Amino acid sequence: MKIKDMCLCALFAVLIGIGAFIKVPVSIVPITLQTLFVILASLILRQKAIYSVLLYVCMGLIGLPVFTSGGGISYVLIPSFGYLIGFIISSWFVGRYQNTNHISLFLRSCIGLAMIYIIGMLYFIFIQYVYYGQVFSISWIFTSLCLVYLPGDLLSILLSIVIYKRIEYSLPQYIMQSNT
Protein backbone atom coordinates (compact mmCIF):
# COMPACT_ATOMS: atom_id res chain seq x y z
CA MET A 1 0.00 0.00 0.00
CA LYS A 2 1.32 3.42 -0.93
CA ILE A 3 1.81 6.21 1.60
CA LYS A 4 -0.96 8.22 -0.07
CA ASP A 5 -3.35 5.29 0.40
CA MET A 6 -2.37 4.89 4.06
CA CYS A 7 -2.95 8.61 4.65
CA LEU A 8 -6.37 8.45 2.98
CA CYS A 9 -7.33 5.38 5.02
CA ALA A 10 -6.26 7.17 8.21
CA LEU A 11 -8.15 10.30 7.16
CA PHE A 12 -11.37 8.37 6.64
CA ALA A 13 -10.92 6.49 9.92
CA VAL A 14 -10.72 9.89 11.63
CA LEU A 15 -13.75 11.18 9.68
CA ILE A 16 -15.79 8.13 10.72
CA GLY A 17 -14.73 8.83 14.32
CA ILE A 18 -15.76 12.47 14.01
CA GLY A 19 -19.04 11.32 12.49
CA ALA A 20 -19.70 9.31 15.66
CA PHE A 21 -19.72 12.51 17.70
CA ILE A 22 -22.07 14.40 15.42
CA LYS A 23 -25.17 12.71 16.75
CA VAL A 24 -28.84 13.17 17.38
CA PRO A 25 -30.13 11.00 20.24
CA VAL A 26 -33.15 9.01 19.09
CA SER A 27 -34.36 5.56 20.01
CA ILE A 28 -31.59 3.31 21.38
CA VAL A 29 -28.92 4.06 18.78
CA PRO A 30 -28.22 7.76 18.03
CA ILE A 31 -28.30 9.14 14.50
CA THR A 32 -24.72 9.89 13.44
CA LEU A 33 -22.76 10.84 10.32
CA GLN A 34 -20.80 7.60 10.40
CA THR A 35 -22.81 6.06 7.57
CA LEU A 36 -22.04 9.07 5.38
CA PHE A 37 -18.29 8.68 5.91
CA VAL A 38 -18.31 4.88 5.56
CA ILE A 39 -20.12 5.10 2.21
CA LEU A 40 -17.95 8.02 1.08
CA ALA A 41 -14.79 6.10 2.01
CA SER A 42 -16.09 3.10 0.07
CA LEU A 43 -16.73 5.20 -3.03
CA ILE A 44 -13.42 7.07 -2.93
CA LEU A 45 -11.04 4.43 -1.59
CA ARG A 46 -12.89 1.53 -3.21
CA GLN A 47 -11.26 -1.76 -2.17
CA LYS A 48 -9.04 -0.03 0.38
CA ALA A 49 -12.02 1.38 2.28
CA ILE A 50 -12.22 -1.73 4.43
CA TYR A 51 -8.80 -0.85 5.90
CA SER A 52 -10.10 2.55 6.91
CA VAL A 53 -13.14 1.10 8.67
CA LEU A 54 -11.08 -1.66 10.29
CA LEU A 55 -8.63 0.97 11.56
CA TYR A 56 -11.53 2.93 13.06
CA VAL A 57 -13.00 -0.14 14.78
CA CYS A 58 -9.58 -1.24 16.07
CA MET A 59 -8.88 2.24 17.46
CA GLY A 60 -12.12 2.03 19.41
CA LEU A 61 -11.56 -1.52 20.62
CA ILE A 62 -8.09 -0.72 21.98
CA GLY A 63 -9.64 1.96 24.15
CA LEU A 64 -9.66 5.21 22.21
CA PRO A 65 -13.04 6.88 22.79
CA VAL A 66 -13.99 7.06 19.09
CA PHE A 67 -17.32 5.24 19.28
CA THR A 68 -20.55 7.09 20.07
CA SER A 69 -20.41 5.90 23.68
CA GLY A 70 -16.65 5.65 24.26
CA GLY A 71 -14.40 2.74 23.44
CA GLY A 72 -12.66 -0.34 24.79
CA ILE A 73 -12.94 -4.07 24.27
CA SER A 74 -16.10 -4.21 26.40
CA TYR A 75 -17.83 -2.24 23.64
CA VAL A 76 -18.51 -5.58 21.93
CA LEU A 77 -21.23 -6.09 24.58
CA ILE A 78 -23.00 -2.86 23.59
CA PRO A 79 -26.02 -3.82 21.46
CA SER A 80 -25.14 -1.23 18.79
CA PHE A 81 -21.69 -2.76 18.13
CA GLY A 82 -23.25 -4.81 15.33
CA TYR A 83 -23.56 -1.65 13.26
CA LEU A 84 -19.78 -1.25 13.44
CA ILE A 85 -19.40 -4.80 12.14
CA GLY A 86 -21.90 -3.86 9.44
CA PHE A 87 -19.71 -0.88 8.50
CA ILE A 88 -16.83 -3.28 7.81
CA ILE A 89 -18.90 -5.62 5.63
CA SER A 90 -20.60 -2.72 3.84
CA SER A 91 -17.31 -0.96 3.05
CA TRP A 92 -15.96 -4.19 1.57
CA PHE A 93 -19.07 -4.67 -0.58
CA VAL A 94 -19.56 -1.09 -1.75
CA GLY A 95 -15.85 -0.56 -2.40
CA ARG A 96 -15.27 -3.63 -4.54
CA TYR A 97 -17.09 -2.39 -7.64
CA GLN A 98 -15.62 0.08 -10.10
CA ASN A 99 -18.69 1.34 -11.97
CA THR A 100 -19.28 5.05 -11.38
CA ASN A 101 -22.74 5.31 -12.95
CA HIS A 102 -25.00 7.32 -10.58
CA ILE A 103 -27.68 4.63 -10.44
CA SER A 104 -25.13 1.90 -9.86
CA LEU A 105 -23.50 3.93 -7.06
CA PHE A 106 -26.87 4.52 -5.42
CA LEU A 107 -28.02 0.89 -5.66
CA ARG A 108 -24.76 -0.56 -4.40
CA SER A 109 -24.70 1.97 -1.53
CA CYS A 110 -28.29 1.03 -0.63
CA ILE A 111 -27.30 -2.64 -0.55
CA GLY A 112 -24.38 -1.68 1.69
CA LEU A 113 -26.79 0.22 3.94
CA ALA A 114 -29.06 -2.83 4.09
CA MET A 115 -26.04 -4.89 5.17
CA ILE A 116 -25.34 -2.42 7.97
CA TYR A 117 -28.95 -2.59 9.15
CA ILE A 118 -29.27 -6.37 8.96
CA ILE A 119 -25.99 -7.06 10.77
CA GLY A 120 -26.72 -4.32 13.30
CA MET A 121 -30.21 -5.59 14.06
CA LEU A 122 -29.14 -9.25 14.30
CA TYR A 123 -26.31 -8.34 16.67
CA PHE A 124 -28.69 -6.19 18.73
CA ILE A 125 -31.11 -9.12 19.05
CA PHE A 126 -28.28 -11.50 19.94
CA ILE A 127 -26.72 -9.30 22.65
CA GLN A 128 -30.06 -8.28 24.11
CA TYR A 129 -31.19 -11.90 24.37
CA VAL A 130 -27.95 -13.65 25.36
CA TYR A 131 -26.28 -11.01 27.53
CA TYR A 132 -29.17 -8.93 28.87
CA GLY A 133 -31.94 -11.56 28.73
CA GLN A 134 -34.36 -9.22 26.95
CA VAL A 135 -36.61 -10.01 24.02
CA PHE A 136 -38.06 -7.43 21.65
CA SER A 137 -40.75 -7.87 19.03
CA ILE A 138 -39.69 -7.93 15.39
CA SER A 139 -41.92 -4.94 14.64
CA TRP A 140 -40.27 -2.90 17.41
CA ILE A 141 -36.79 -3.87 16.22
CA PHE A 142 -37.57 -3.02 12.59
CA THR A 143 -39.22 0.29 13.49
CA SER A 144 -36.75 1.39 16.17
CA LEU A 145 -33.53 0.17 14.58
CA CYS A 146 -34.22 0.63 10.87
CA LEU A 147 -37.15 2.82 9.86
CA VAL A 148 -36.18 5.66 12.19
CA TYR A 149 -32.78 5.94 10.52
CA LEU A 150 -33.67 5.17 6.92
CA PRO A 151 -34.50 8.72 5.68
CA GLY A 152 -31.30 10.20 7.12
CA ASP A 153 -29.16 7.34 5.86
CA LEU A 154 -30.64 7.59 2.37
CA LEU A 155 -29.82 11.29 2.46
CA SER A 156 -26.28 10.35 3.58
CA ILE A 157 -25.96 8.06 0.56
CA LEU A 158 -27.08 10.80 -1.81
CA LEU A 159 -24.70 13.28 -0.20
CA SER A 160 -21.83 10.75 -0.42
CA ILE A 161 -22.46 10.28 -4.13
CA VAL A 162 -22.55 14.04 -4.74
CA ILE A 163 -19.31 14.55 -2.82
CA TYR A 164 -17.69 11.59 -4.58
CA LYS A 165 -18.67 12.90 -8.01
CA ARG A 166 -17.34 16.37 -7.14
CA ILE A 167 -14.04 14.89 -6.01
CA GLU A 168 -13.87 12.59 -9.02
CA TYR A 169 -14.28 15.49 -11.45
CA SER A 170 -12.01 17.94 -9.64
CA LEU A 171 -8.99 15.78 -8.80
CA PRO A 172 -6.40 14.80 -11.38
CA GLN A 173 -7.25 11.48 -13.01
CA TYR A 174 -4.09 9.74 -11.76
CA ILE A 175 -5.16 10.26 -8.13
CA MET A 176 -8.54 8.61 -8.60
CA GLN A 177 -7.12 5.79 -10.73
CA SER A 178 -4.59 4.78 -8.10
CA ASN A 179 -7.45 3.71 -5.81
CA THR A 180 -8.46 0.87 -8.08
Rank of each mutant, 00 (worst) to 15 (best):
residue 77 L to D: 03
residue 63 G to W: 08
residue 180 T to V: 12
residue 1 M to V: 11
residue 138 I to S: 11
residue 135 V to F: 06
residue 156 S to R: 11
residue 46 R to D: 05
residue 89 I to R: 11
residue 76 V to A: 03
residue 164 Y to V: 09
residue 53 V to R: 00
residue 173 Q to K: 15
residue 36 L to P: 00
residue 46 R to E: 10
residue 109 S to E: 03
residue 20 A to L: 07
residue 27 S to C: 13
residue 27 S to I: 09
residue 112 G to N: 04
residue 169 Y to W: 12
residue 33 L to V: 05
residue 2 K to F: 05
residue 178 S to G: 06
residue 12 F to K: 01
residue 93 F to S: 05
residue 105 L to T: 08
residue 9 C to I: 10
residue 65 P to F: 00
residue 142 F to I: 15
residue 138 I to C: 10
residue 149 Y to R: 05
residue 120 G to S: 00
residue 14 V to I: 13
residue 130 V to L: 06
residue 134 Q to W: 00
residue 84 L to E: 12
residue 174 Y to M: 13
residue 173 Q to F: 14
residue 102 H to N: 13
residue 81 F to T: 03
residue 150 L to V: 09
residue 21 F to M: 13
residue 152 G to R: 01
residue 71 G to N: 05
residue 99 N to P: 14
residue 116 I to M: 10
residue 83 Y to T: 09
residue 1 M to N: 05
residue 126 F to N: 03
residue 138 I to K: 10
residue 102 H to T: 11
residue 151 P to I: 03
residue 48 K to H: 06
residue 31 I to S: 08
residue 41 A to P: 01
residue 11 L to M: 13
residue 87 F to T: 04
residue 150 L to H: 02
residue 1 M to R: 09
residue 9 C to G: 00
residue 130 V to R: 03
residue 87 F to G: 08
residue 47 Q to L: 09
residue 158 L to D: 01
